[in-house]
Every structure is written in structure tokens, then in C-alpha cells.
């Protein structure tokens, strides 16, 4: 490739096309001596931050859970929704029975092989973005029924799980802490 004139920019900048465009624009503007408009640049930045931040804020503060109590952890889930540890003060209200209106599925109780097709069907009926919390040890890893012939060893063999809560059963305060962690994940404050 002799005889070609030397390129004005390096190879590393060529790889990133946005950087390349910036370089080209600044090169062309440099000859014109126009001062960039600070007001419009800041306005664009703030509206972008406001809109995506507002969407994330509203999504994380109004997560509606689905009633999925299978076994003993469902009793603590009912206690979580009633008056001492109030789930509604962080937006976790409206335990709905239909999956079309819900964001979070809290799997509480042990999962047997007979009920796995129903769980998959309900998960596919939920609208994205959707999240799953595995509540208790039976949903995390099989629990005390690890050696049984009819049990799935954890719900994460079937569905993707976001937060695991350990305990048998975990106290409702533990579920509240898991809820706060899930809210941080939905709001983008935690690196996934």
C-alpha cells in the first residue's frame, strides 16, 4: 500500500464508529470556528436522563407480585402481605391471581415434577419485563427433600431466577430485604 497518503487518524479510533464520527465532525467544525451551543447540549442530556430514569423509577416502585404459594412458605408470604410487615408501603401491592397483570413471580414451596408444565405456562403468560424470586430453601436447591424421587432440585432448573432467599422458612423481614435488592436491580443501580 505504498503511495497512499498517511491517514489522519489512528486504527483504534477507526474501530469505534461513534468516536470516528465525533472526530470527523470536530475536524470539520474546527475550520468554521463556531462555538457549540451549551444550552442545547445540556437539554439533550437532561431529557434523556429524565425519561429513562423516570421509567426506571416508576417500574421499580410498582412491582405487582403473583400469588404462587405452593406449600409452607406461602403462609409466611401471607404474613408478609398483612399488617405487621406491610408489603404495600414499597409498592408491592395487589397480589393478583392472573399472570397478565403481574411483574414478579414469587415461587414459595417445593416444586414437584407434576406441576412443572403449569409453572412454565404461567411464566410464559407474564408480560416482560418480568422477574422471579425463589423464596425459601426448597425453591433454591430442593431443600430437605433433596433425596426424593418426585422433586425438582430448585426452580432454577426451569426458570431464570433473580433473587434467592435462604431459610426454612425465611422470616418475612428477609423477603422484605430481597424486595429491596430486586428494586435496586430494576432501577439499574446494581451491575448485573
Amino acid at each position: 500500500m505504498e503511495g497512499q497518503e498517511k491517514r489522519p487518524y489512528s486504527d483504534a479510533a477507526f474501530m469505534d464508529s461513534k468516536q470516528e464520527m465525533d472526530l470527523l465532525v470536530s475536524k470539520s467544525l474546527a475550520g468554521r470556528e463556531v462555538k457549540p451551543n451549551v444550552l442545547f447540549a445540556n437539554l439533550e442530556k437532561t431529557t434523556k436522563a429524565l425519561s429513562s430514569g423516570m421509567v426506571k423509577w416508576s417500574r421499580k416502585n410498582s412491582l405487582w407480585p403473583m400469588q404462587f404459594g405452593l406449600a409452607c412458605c406461602a403462609i409466611e408470604l401471607m404474613d408478609f402481605g398483612s399488617s405487621r410487615i406491610d408489603a404495600e408501603r414499597r409498592g408491592f401491592l395487589m397480589f393478583r391471581a392472573t399472570p397478565r397483570q403481574c411483574d414478579v413471580m414469587i415461587v414459595a414451596g417445593w416444586v414437584t415434577k407434576s406441576i412443572v408444565p403449569e409453572i412454565k405456562r404461567l411464566y410464559e403468560q407474564m408480560l416482560s419485563p418480568k422477574y422471579v424470586i425463589a423464596y425459601g430453601e426448597c425453591a433454591t436447591c430442593g431443600g430437605p427433600w433433596f433425596e426424593s424421587y418426585n422433586i425438582m432440585k430448585g426452580i432454577d432448573q426451569v426458570l431464570p431466577v433473580d433473587v434467592y432467599v435462604a431459610g426454612c422458612p425465611p422470616k418475612p423481614e428477609n423477603l422484605f430485604g430481597a424486595l429491596v435488592k430486586l428494586q435496586k436491580k430494576v432501577g439499574g443501580e446494581v451491575e448485573v
Binding site: L70, A71, G109, W110, T112, S114, I115, W145, S148, Y149, N150, I151
Partner: peptide, 8 residues
């Protein structure tokens, strides 16, 4: 749907 074979 919740059978886990406790007697075994």
C-alpha cells in the same frame, strides 16, 4: 402435586 414420598 405435592407428593414427595415422606414414608420412603
Amino acid at each position: 402435586f405435592l407428593h414427595r414420598g415422606v414414608e420412603k
